[in-house]
Amino acid sequence: MLSRVHPLAKLVVCMAWLAASILVFDARFQVVAILVAAAILIVLERRSPVFVMLLTVPFALFGFGFLTTSLLFREDGGFAQRMAEEAPLGSEALSAGVVLFLRAVACGMISALFALTTDPGAFIKALMASWRLPPSLGFALFSAVNLVPDLAGEAQRIRLARAMRRGRPPRRIPGPVEAASLLIPLLAYAIRRATRAAISMELRGLGARPRTIANSPLFSRMDAAFAAAAFVLLWGFVILLA
């Protein structure tokens, strides 16, 4: 359902929630932001709860660094005292660390929500059509989006070719030595792709104006309703918890 919302409307909403997560010094608001993002992924996007839980792991590890830094290298300052007053958890260092930990998870989940529900191609086209993104930059972003999966496929083809030459199947996960040996071939592959992309950009005449952007996303009433509901929900939580 959220995948059908206009990418730019979704971007503005997610940026507003990110700004609120950064500015609101309250652990309860961070928890609410995490739960809202998780509920949208599970209920509306039909994502597995296990997948959503695993999605929080890298953000939790990042936030754990803030927590341990706050506890081990404590310094009583205005920032820590303010968070301790608004979310008392036993000590200023612990309160500050917990808020920073939850903030990292909340910001990560909001960003992941946007990334998982937005098609990169539609997002770039929307930027070009509505926010006047230069065509040359948009084509470069298209090339980068397509290059990432192509690099993975090229790496797998190189590994299979080497395995056939050795006469034994490749390992499921490449070791450090094998991964290092793939860097030069993949770099050469990326340079060739970049050269072809540059030539293609010249041939397409991306500097010419005006231009037509085919199949770019269009705003609808559903986008306005989604943005209004998201901002009302955000404002309600801020007023209730701030």
Score class of each variant (00 low, 15 high):
43 V>S: 04
57 V>Q: 13
48 S>F: 05
114 F>G: 02
129 A>N: 02
106 A>I: 09
22 I>Q: 12
159 R>P: 14
50 V>M: 15
61 L>R: 06
131 W>R: 00
140 A>G: 02
204 R>V: 15
31 V>C: 13
95 S>L: 08
151 L>E: 11
222 M>L: 09
154 E>I: 04
197 A>I: 14
217 P>D: 06
198 A>W: 05
12 V>N: 03
154 E>W: 13
242 A>K: 12
122 A>E: 10
240 L>E: 15
70 S>K: 01
104 A>C: 15
54 L>E: 13
71 L>H: 07
123 F>I: 01
103 R>W: 13
80 A>T: 05
66 F>I: 04
154 E>Q: 13
69 T>V: 06
164 M>I: 06
17 W>P: 05
199 I>P: 15
127 L>V: 03
206 L>M: 14
108 G>Q: 08
94 L>C: 07
46 R>H: 07
75 E>I: 07
145 V>D: 05
91 S>T: 06
44 L>N: 07
237 F>L: 13
102 L>T: 01
201 M>K: 02
80 A>R: 04
2 L>F: 00
118 T>E: 01
19 A>H: 05
80 A>E: 10
145 V>N: 14
14 C>R: 02
149 P>R: 11
242 A>T: 03
40 I>N: 08
3 S>D: 07
69 T>Y: 08
237 F>V: 11
147 L>G: 11
88 P>G: 01
225 A>P: 11
205 G>I: 12
228 A>D: 05
36 V>E: 10
145 V>P: 12
187 L>W: 09
78 G>M: 04
41 L>H: 09
109 M>L: 05
31 V>K: 07
211 R>I: 13
187 L>D: 14
85 E>N: 14
98 V>M: 03
132 R>K: 06
70 S>D: 10
132 R>L: 00
167 G>I: 00
138 G>Y: 00
123 F>G: 01
158 I>R: 10
169 P>K: 02
134 P>V: 01
212 T>S: 08
221 R>H: 09
123 F>P: 02
37 A>R: 10
200 S>F: 14
156 Q>C: 12
188 A>T: 12
81 Q>G: 03
177 V>E: 14
191 I>H: 12
181 S>P: 06
221 R>E: 00
129 A>R: 00
157 R>I: 13
77 G>P: 08
215 N>M: 10
13 V>M: 06
54 L>N: 02
10 K>V: 07
126 A>W: 00
197 A>Q: 09
49 P>Q: 03
7 P>H: 02
39 A>N: 06
108 G>K: 02
201 M>Q: 07
216 S>I: 06
167 G>D: 02
20 A>G: 10
219 F>I: 01
100 L>P: 03
109 M>W: 03
140 A>E: 00
234 L>K: 05
152 A>D: 13
21 S>A: 05
2 L>K: 02
2 L>S: 10
162 R>T: 11
190 A>F: 07
115 A>S: 01
197 A>Y: 01
